[in-house]
Design a protein around this nucleic acid. Sequence first.
DNA 1: TCATCGGGCGAAATAATATTGCGCCTGAGG
DNA 2: CCTCAGGCGCAATATTATTTCGCCCGATGA
Lengths: 166, 166
Amino acid sequence: MAGSKLDPIDRHILAELQADGRMTNVELAKRVGISAPPCLRRVRTLEESGYIKGYHADVDARELGFEVQVFAMVRLQSQAEADLSAFEARCRAWPLVRECHMLNGEIDFILKCVAPDLSTFQSFLTAELTAADNVASVKTSLVIRCAKDEPGLPFDVLEARLSKTA
Amino acid sequence: MAGSKLDPIDRHILAELQADGRMTNVELAKRVGISAPPCLRRVRTLEESGYIKGYHADVDARELGFEVQVFAMVRLQSQAEADLSAFEARCRAWPLVRECHMLNGEIDFILKCVAPDLSTFQSFLTAELTAADNVASVKTSLVIRCAKDEPGLPFDVLEARLSKTA
DNA sequence: TCATCGGGCGAAATAATATTGCGCCTGAGG
DNA sequence: CCTCAGGCGCAATATTATTTCGCCCGATGA
C-alpha cells in the first residue's frame, strides 16, 4: 500500500507541516516526540522523496482584490489525446485558471478560476476560453461563498485506515 | 481598491511566499530588495492583518494513498439560509470533503473530495452525502487527471492591473 | 547464544537565521 | 524651516538549523 514506507512519526510530521508549514523544526520535533536533528533529517527525506511537494503561503484572495471565483465546466469537441493535451496546455498558460482537472462523464474538464472582477472574468470567458480551439461548451458557476477550503489531506482518515490493516 | 494598502514590496513578498512558503527571511529580503529586519516586520504585518492566512506543506495525495479525487455537484431541496448553513456545517464535519463552495445557478454546492479508494468514496457518497438531510441530488465526477493545480493567486495579473490604474 | 553490522537517535558544537533595539533619513504638514 | 511619523538598516542578541559523532537497538548469521 502506498504510504507504507512511512512510519507514524513521518505521517505525524506531514500532518503538522500541512497544518502549519512554517513551524520551526524545534517545535515540530517536540510535537512528534523526537529531537531536532532526526526530525530535520526526516523532513528533508520527505521533501526529496516527493511526499512534500512544496510550501505555500495561503494568501487572502478577497483582500488582494480578487473578488470573483468561478468554476467552469468545459466540454470539448474531440477527446483525442492530442486535443486533450492541447487544451490542458492552454489552461496552464491562462493565469486566471488556477486548477484544471480532467473528469469522467459528460463534462471533460472543470476549471477553477479567479478574477479581480466579473467583467475581467467575462472577457476571459468570451475572448479566451469559449473561443478556444476544440471547446464545445462552457458552463460557469460563480462561487457565492466558500464554506470549507481545507488544504491537503485528512490525515485522521489515513491513520484510521492504517490501524485497521495493522 | 482592495490591496491598495500594500506597496509593491508587500505584493512582492506575498508572491514570493506564495511560491515558496518556507523561504528564509534573509532570502526573502534579498529578493524583494530590502534588509532582513524590515522584511520580517512586513511579513508579520501581512500575517496579522490577514493578507497571509497561513502556511501549508503541499503533500502528495497519491503517494500517501489517496488515489481518488472527486467533484460532487449537490442540489438541495431547500435553499433557505438555515438549510444552507446546516449543509455547510455537515460538509465541514466530513473529512473526505476538502472544499465546499456555494454556487449560483442550478447546482447549489460543489464539493471537492478525496478518498483512499473508490469504495471508500462510494460508501461516503451513499451512506453520508446522498443520505444527508435536504440533499435533493448529487452528481459526481471522478478526476481522471490534473493538468494544473496552482496554489493561490496570479500576482502578475494583479500587477498588470495596478500599473494600468497608476 | 553471541559477535557484527546498519540504521536511526540524540547530545553537543557550530553556522545560520530570526528578532530586538536604536539611531538615521525622508517626506508630509504646519 | 521645524517637527513629527514612518520606515529603513546596522549591530547586538536570541533562536533555530545543521553538522558531527558516539550510542543503542534490532536484524543477521555463525
